[in-house]
Simulated assay, not measured.
Amino acid sequence: MSSLDREDKGMPFLLKYENVAWYEDGEVRILDRRVFPTKKKFVHCTDYVEVIQAIRDMVTQSAGPYTAVGMGMALAAYQSKDKPKKEQIAFLKKASIELGNARPTTANRYRQITNRAFNVGTSAIEAGKNASLAIFEDTIESMNRRYSLMQKVGNNLVELFPDGSGILTQCYGETIIGTMIRAARKANKTFRIFNAETRPFLQGARLTSSCFVEAGFETTLVTDNMTNFILERGDIDFYTSAADSISMDGNIANKIGTKQIAILANRVGVPYFVTGIPDLDKENKEAITIEYRDPQQVLNLMGQRIALDGVKAIYPAFDVTPPELIGAIVTDRGVFSPYDLRRYLESGEKEEFY
């Protein structure tokens, strides 16, 4: 597939490539999801270190950093283009390590992208070619692969839902949301979407609900502490979320609060379907690192302090949901029990798509 071909056709605004992260002329432009949809504002980075900071500051999140680290590598190649070849390669190596560890829970996925970008850039440097362009084009190809592979996941997920189902989401699942929308349109299905708001950055309210309402779905926002009420009232037929990490023993890490919704859904008999690709390099839940973020991000909401000085806070970014609370894990290769992810490997090696 040529880098001129793109897999973002029919995707919501948030999932268009240029609106995730984009490298051009010595700059990486990243849509600031912290203020969307109130503002459509971009953060402009002229140093790859600024890309790292943007990721850590949640300018972009979910699968957004997968693109941002690739574009950051293109920027690093641009920053070092006037150095001798050996120094260019050393600079690019340093950038690949630092960008690849921008956040701990998903660092294994980031490193797949930055390591590949390093190899692509090194080959270009040694051949006397434009390393920034080579890495940029490789990042577009990575996005194409990810969108294409996740479309298979979206298709498999939509097949599970009868037309008119009530579906509860958690946080912002990014690519799966876009591919779910495209799959539903193709199958002529519609859903009633309920989005948990997702404190403290309100990704469900600002990002997920924006995508679904833009696509024409009946979209209802609920605060995080309303989920039990709507589950017990019978509004919800299925609960679904993406996963930032899926260990091979069937544990999944996702945005903090995912587990408590799974507990509530399990209590009333609402199945929970997780979407994603198993992390073959994470044997069990002990391999999942939980990131703890700045507690100030809990004490403030959209720039407004919401608690008195002296009040403490805690902010674990993710929690781990065990397999007994998961109805199925929906992948590109089909639907699997969380207790039997080894079967995912029976149809071949995991595809490279990050």
Rank of each mutant, 00 (worst) to 15 (best):
N156Y: 08
S80A: 15
P323Y: 04
N19I: 05
I55Y: 09
K9M: 01
T175P: 09
P295H: 06
R116Q: 10
P271R: 00
G310T: 13
L341E: 05
V153W: 03
Y315F: 15
I55R: 00
Q304S: 09
G234N: 05
I261S: 06
S80E: 08
I125C: 07
G327L: 02
N156L: 14
M302C: 08
G173M: 07
G100M: 00
A287S: 13
A74F: 14
G327T: 15
K41A: 08
R111Y: 08
W22N: 03
W22R: 04
C211H: 04
I181L: 02
C171M: 00
D309H: 11
L4D: 14
T258E: 08
S80I: 03
A21C: 04
G276C: 11
K81R: 09
F36P: 01
G64R: 01
E141W: 09
F238T: 04
D244S: 08
D82R: 00
D47H: 10
C171Y: 07
F273R: 00
T240K: 02
Y354R: 02
G72M: 02
G216F: 06
G250S: 08
V270D: 02
Q203E: 15
A68L: 04
V274P: 02
C211G: 13
T114G: 06
I181C: 06
Y172K: 01
I261H: 12
K282G: 06
P278T: 00
E351I: 15
K81V: 08
G234Q: 06
P295L: 01
A95G: 04
Y239P: 06
E7A: 06
A313L: 04
G164F: 12
V69S: 06
K9Y: 13
Q170I: 14
L280T: 02
A77R: 01
S165E: 12
G100T: 00
R267H: 13
S337H: 04
Y315W: 10
H44F: 13
L264N: 07
K85F: 03
E351H: 11
A131H: 12
V69K: 02
A243F: 13
E87Q: 07
L299F: 08
Y315I: 01
K40F: 11
A102I: 00
D244K: 00
V120T: 07
N254K: 00
A287R: 00
E214M: 03
Y344A: 10
